[in-house]
């Protein structure tokens, strides 16, 4: 395979569409996880409610569940006759077998990363620091923005990048819910497998190399961002 063939293989519209889906859906999933993961961690550390331990344990479920099982379960739930899918269908929202389904699967598998990195930091936050801010007249929002968020930002960034990295490489759970329609809901790892099954080892490797390079660049960027955030915080640590 020469350079021209390589370039041709990795830039066919079908492959490019798969990059967009893989990285786009992973990014959206990680962003959603950053929000919901933070919220989950917050509720788990700040509030007492019955069944809290159970919920705390359930957070780890995506870690333990075989991805294929997760994929099949999500497909069953979100298909038009599933529990959730049947509720969304009347509004014209289809999740299973669409790119949206890919986002749902990637969100599901990434949630624990954010919760488990942010939770200990939130637990370590001294109540007194917030009380000090309040006694100085800061509103709850000001306290969150100026005091709490700088403290948890590095952890949140770590959780986000872990969830993002995991989502880029995810295969098992996505292929069941995605429907795998070329150009629409086909992820890059699936394309690699397809090529391997057709004994096109060179083509599979070419796409894999592109994945590798993009992933590396993205994670390097995130790591630099983390380093910068830590550096800023180190003055205080």
């Amino acid at each position: 395979m020469d350079w021209q063939q390589f370039w041709h293989t990795v830039t066919t519209p079908r492959v490019v569409a798969s990059y967009r889906l893989t990285f786009g859906a992973a990014l959206i999933g990680a962003i959603i996880n950053a929000g919901f993961g933070l919220l989950t961690a917050w509720v788990l550390t700040r509030y007492q409610f019955p069944g809290k331990r159970l919920i705390d344990a359930l957070v780890d479920l995506p870690f333990a569940l075989p991805t294929a099982v997760a994929g099949i379960a999500l497909t069953a739930i979100y298909s038009t006759n599933g529990w959730v899918g049947s509720l969304l269908a009347p509004y014209g929202i289809k999740v299973a077998f669409t790119p949206l389904g890919v986002v749902v699967a990637l969100t599901f598998i990434g949630l624990p990363f954010v919760v488990r990195t942010v939770q200990p930091v939130l637990e370590d936050l001294e109540q007194e620091v917030e009380e000090a801010a309040a006694s100085l007249g800061a509103s709850r929002w000001q306290t969150f923005r100026k005091i709490i968020s700088p403290a948890i930002f590095p952890a949140l960034l770590t959780g986000f990048s872990l969830a993002f990295a995991r989502a880029i490489g995810e295969y098992g759970s996505v292929i069941f819910i995605a429907g795998n329609m070329p150009m629409k809901s086909e992820i890059t790892p699936l394309l690699i497998i397809t090529k391997l099954e057709q004994f096109d080892y060179a083509g599979a490797t070419a796409i894999a190399v592109v994945m590798l390079v993009i992933s590396f660049v993205l994670l390097l960027t995130i790591n630099l961002l983390q380093w910068w955030a830590n550096q800023r915080n180190k003055n205080g640590a």
Binding site: E126, E128, V129, E131, A132, A133, A134, S135, L136, G137, A138, S139, K146, I147, P150, A151, R232, N233, N235, G236, A237
Partner: peptide
């Protein structure tokens, strides 16, 4: 609420804002 009472509260373990300079700590209020 504590926010409206205009009290100065000093904690045993200082409760300073670690990510802010001394100047910004004092200026916070």
């Amino acid at each position: 609420d504590v926010r409206e009472r205009q009290v100065g509260f000093v904690f045993q373990h200082y409760a300073l804002f670690r990510h802010m300079t001394v100047f910004e700590n004092v200026a916070f209020g």
